[in-house]
Structure formats: C-alpha cells, structure tokens
C-alpha cells in the first residue's frame, strides 16, 4: 500500500476491528493475507513467539481468573500482525508527510518529526539487536539473564548518544517549532479499494461484537 494516509487509517480500523471481536480479528488477518499480501516485519517464527510472550502471559492470567484468555490472545495476535504489516510497508519520511498533510506545518510537522525519530530509533534498535546477537555468538556467549544488564545498558547509552546528536543537529539547523515541508502522495486505486475493505471489516466487527450493546462494559466476545 503506497499511500501512507490510507495505510494509517486502515491500520487503525483493522486494529480496532481485531480488538472488538473475534470475527473481526479473523477478517483482519484475512485482509492481511489477501490485500496486505501477507507482508510482515516479523522475520522469523521465533521472533513472533517472543513478541507473543507478554500477551500469552496476560491470556493465561485471564484464563486463570475465569475470563476468555484465548479470545484475548487471538485478538492481540491479529493486532500485532496488522502492526507488523504497517511497519513493513512504511518508508522513511511518511510520518512527516502525513503529519504535515493532516495537521499543518506546526503541530503536524512536530508530531511527524517525533514519529520519524521514534521509527528511526526502532530501526536502530532492531539493527543493534542483530549485531549484538552476532557478536555474542562469535564470542561464544549464550543469551542469558546474566548478560541483560550489560547489553541493555550499552543499547541505552548508544540510544541516548544518538538522541543527543540529533538534538544538537536540530538545534544547529535552527529548529524551534514546526518547519517547512511539502508532502506528496501516490494514491493508486487499489489502495482505496483495500482501504474500503478495511472500513467494511471494521463495521462487520462492530456488528459481530455486538458493540452497541456492550459499549462501556467490555469488548470481549
């Protein structure tokens, strides 16, 4: 999906659809398989299961307390799949484009810039994790809780240094608030059709989840 505006709205609608009801979660995954071409930023099954650890524990806790934990895990999985699709589809600068298009060159620019810096930090974090994993393997050190403080403090310090360098760069370039940016978008017809499908899924999920009756209490079906 080339148009980041449609992608953002689609992500919000599909995530909401997946969260509201189980049928919505299945339809969101179906949308991802067909319209999203099953693109994902989760590169290995192992990574997927690592991401699922926290929701899995939450799901177990829900089951333990007599709630429908399985439904929670399935719905959160669908939300994660949609998020990973969005992350895989994005291109550098799109949050700035969307921010300025939506909220203008002051607030929109600032929000877009924050988004871009955050995304860039996530990229750096992913790259660092890969590099550390390789370095430790070559060194003959296995991943264990014992090495977490040292590894994470290294990552944290490098992230802080990066943030400081960026802050200095922005200051040197005279940034105080807002900025000039002229976004341009490519919006092919297929993006609009896929976006329309996501709207339909959201509405179907609302109906299937009996949203209007249970709004204000719980969304779990």
């Amino acid at each position: 999906m080339q148009d980041p505006r449609i992608r953002l709205v689609t992500t919000i609608l599909l995530s909401a659809a997946a969260w509201i009801s189980l049928p919505g979660a299945f339809l969101a995954v179906l949308w991802w398989l067909i319209c999203g071409k099953a693109r994902t930023s989760i590169r290995t099954i192992r990574s997927f299961f690592i991401i699922l650890i926290v929701p899995g524990v939450m799901g177990l806790a829900a089951v333990w307390s007599g709630k429908d934990g399985l439904s929670y895990v399935v719905r959160i999985m669908a939300v994660l799949i949609i998020a990973s699709w969005m992350y895989a589809e994005r291109y550098p600068g799109e949050l700035l484009d969307v921010g300025v298009w939506f909220l203008g060159t002051k607030t929109g620019f600032d929000l877009g810039l924050i988004g871009e810096l955050s995304m860039s930090s996530l990229d750096t974090l992913a790259r660092e994790t890969d590099r550390i994993s390789i370095a430790l393997r070559q060194k003959g050190t296995s991943l264990s809780p014992r090495i977490i403080p040292a590894v994470f403090s290294g990552i944290l310090i490098r992230q802080l240094n990066l943030a400081q360098e960026r802050a200095i760069l922005l200051t040197l370039r005279g940034y105080t608030r807002g900025g000039m940016h002229c976004p341009s978008f490519s919006s092919p017809g297929i993006d609009r059709i896929n976006g329309a499908f996501s709207c339909t899924i959201f509405i179907l999920s609302l109906i299937a989840g009996d949203f209007f009756n249970i709004a204000g209490s719980t969304f779990i079906v």
Binding site: E128, R131, I132, A135, K139, P149, A150, G154, R158
Partner: peptide, 9 residues
C-alpha cells in the same frame, strides 16, 4: 565499529 561484544559489567 561499536562495542557490541560487551556482555558484562
């Protein structure tokens, strides 16, 4: 170029 090998304190 970065000290990725560090695993202790």
């Amino acid at each position: 170029d970065t000290s990725y090998h560090i695993s202790t304190m």
